[in-house]
Simulated assay, not measured.
Amino acid sequence: MTKDTHSGLFLTFEGIDGSGKSTQARRLAEHLRNLGHDVVLTREPGGSPGAEEIRRLVLEGDPDRWSAETEILLFTAARRDHLERTILPALSAGKVVICDRFADSTRMYQGLSRGDLRALVDQLHQLMIGREPDLTMLIDMDPDVGLSRAKARQGTEERFEDFGPELQHKMRAGFLSLAQDFPDRFRILDGGQERDAITAELVQITLQALYQAPV
Rank of each mutant, 00 (worst) to 15 (best):
R27S: 00
L28D: 07
E30I: 03
E30V: 04
H31D: 14
H31E: 14
L32S: 07
L35D: 10
L35S: 10
G36P: 01
H37Y: 13
H37Q: 11
V40P: 15
V40K: 15
L41C: 13
L41H: 11
T42P: 02
P45H: 13
P45V: 12
G46S: 08
P49W: 00
P49K: 00
G50E: 04
E52N: 05
E52R: 03
E53F: 08
I54C: 04
R55W: 09
L57E: 11
L59M: 15
L59N: 11
E60G: 08
G61M: 00
P63R: 03
D64L: 07
D64I: 02
R65A: 13
W66N: 03
S67G: 13
A68Y: 00
E69T: 09
T70V: 11
T70H: 08
T70N: 07
I72S: 05
I72L: 11
L73G: 02
L74M: 09
L74G: 02
F75A: 07
F75G: 08
T76S: 13
T76H: 11
A77I: 05
A78V: 03
D81G: 02
D81F: 00
H82Q: 07
H82L: 03
L83C: 13
L83I: 13
E84Q: 06
T86W: 07
T86D: 06
T86L: 05
L88K: 10
L88W: 06
P89L: 04
P89N: 07
P89T: 05
P89Y: 05
A90N: 14
A90I: 15
L91E: 11
L91V: 13
S92P: 01
S92R: 15
K95F: 08
V96G: 03
D100P: 01
R101Y: 07
F102P: 03
F102I: 04
A103K: 09
A103Y: 09
D104L: 06
D104G: 04
S105Q: 12
